Computed example of a mutant assay.
Amino acid sequence: MDRYQAMATFIRVVETGSFSAAARQLGVGQPAVSKTIAQLEAHLQVSLIVRSTHGLTPTEAGQNFYERARNAIQEADEAELAARGAGAGLSGRLRVSAATTFARLHIIPKLPRFMAEHPHLNVEIILDDRLIDLVAEGIDVSIRMGTLADSTAIARKIATGSRSVLATPTYLERAGIPRTPADLTNHDAIIYSQLPSVWSFTQNGAALSVSVSGRLKVSAAEGLRAAVLADMGLSIASDWMFAPELEAGTVVRVLEAWSLPSIDLWAVFPSGRMKTAKARLFADFVENLMSA
């Protein structure tokens, strides 16, 4: 029995709560996971997991072993990275989740550099605008924007960006340019369902909120981008979301004398799981991208 692999398998079983989920994340069959746990229990001569109709729960001994094994593997990963040196790079698999548009525009085009630095590392990027269960999905690090809903999340702020009211010149030529936030009530707003339809502005310390409306509501940032670029209306979005178009002038900012709340970019790590060297260095990579 490979003790290191057995510990890693046990950790994944505890964190996912089932043999089948652990097997999917590890890329092996469920019987292999069950056999590994049985061998580990036989080696330790103690029961690590209670199996019931409600799932798997670690015993007291299993919980103690999980916490120590998790720390041991994290230390081993860090020791291996230090021994290899920066030039040797990372190895294994890294699972990242990120918002679709942000990853497509800002992360994936820069990935060749990161992967060239770590030729033995396999990267899997799960593109999803929704918040997903990082532990259940086996995510090592998630790149998220906005306010973190989970106060228990292990997170690190890696960038702060601006929000603007954006539209195409074609739409503004047709509908007119809003001069104050109140003018937005006469415009077609493209509503992003993950954000409120009340837009809040500040100017010289004064706050103003405007309730906007429009015929189109979209559930994903890619849809909002497509609608704005199709001259269907204006919308609030992070400047990151329209970075190429803002640079090219095919999308422009309006109401620039008024400020909108900024948006934060976070690297979020699964609660209760070890923060791997791979996850930490990928977060560093994205942070460096956004500060360049």
Rank of each mutant, 00 (worst) to 15 (best):
residue 148 L to W: 02
residue 276 T to I: 04
residue 203 Q to N: 12
residue 86 A to M: 09
residue 18 S to W: 00
residue 144 R to K: 11
residue 125 I to Y: 05
residue 61 A to M: 11
residue 186 N to L: 12
residue 126 I to K: 11
residue 40 L to W: 09
residue 171 Y to W: 12
residue 127 L to S: 09
residue 281 L to D: 10
residue 90 L to H: 08
residue 185 T to W: 02
residue 38 A to P: 00
residue 275 K to P: 02
residue 31 P to E: 08
residue 125 I to Q: 04
residue 275 K to Y: 00
residue 258 W to K: 01
residue 116 A to V: 05
residue 269 F to Y: 15
residue 155 A to C: 10
residue 29 G to W: 04
residue 222 E to N: 14
residue 131 L to C: 06
residue 14 V to E: 04
residue 253 R to E: 15
residue 263 I to N: 01
residue 106 H to G: 00
residue 284 D to I: 07
residue 228 V to Q: 02
residue 251 V to T: 06
residue 155 A to T: 05
residue 28 V to R: 12
residue 269 F to L: 07
residue 116 A to E: 14
residue 265 L to W: 00
residue 131 L to I: 12
residue 131 L to R: 13
residue 208 L to Q: 14
residue 100 T to V: 13
residue 245 E to P: 10
residue 37 I to K: 03
residue 210 V to F: 00
residue 145 M to I: 05
residue 33 V to M: 03
residue 186 N to G: 14
residue 109 P to W: 03
residue 176 G to R: 03
residue 177 I to R: 14
residue 156 R to N: 09
residue 54 H to P: 00
residue 230 A to T: 09
residue 21 A to W: 03
residue 57 T to P: 04
residue 96 V to Y: 10
residue 269 F to A: 03
residue 125 I to G: 03
residue 196 P to K: 04
residue 57 T to H: 10
residue 55 G to S: 09
residue 89 G to Y: 00
residue 113 R to V: 14
residue 231 D to P: 07
residue 51 R to K: 15
residue 17 G to R: 01
residue 81 L to N: 13
residue 186 N to T: 13
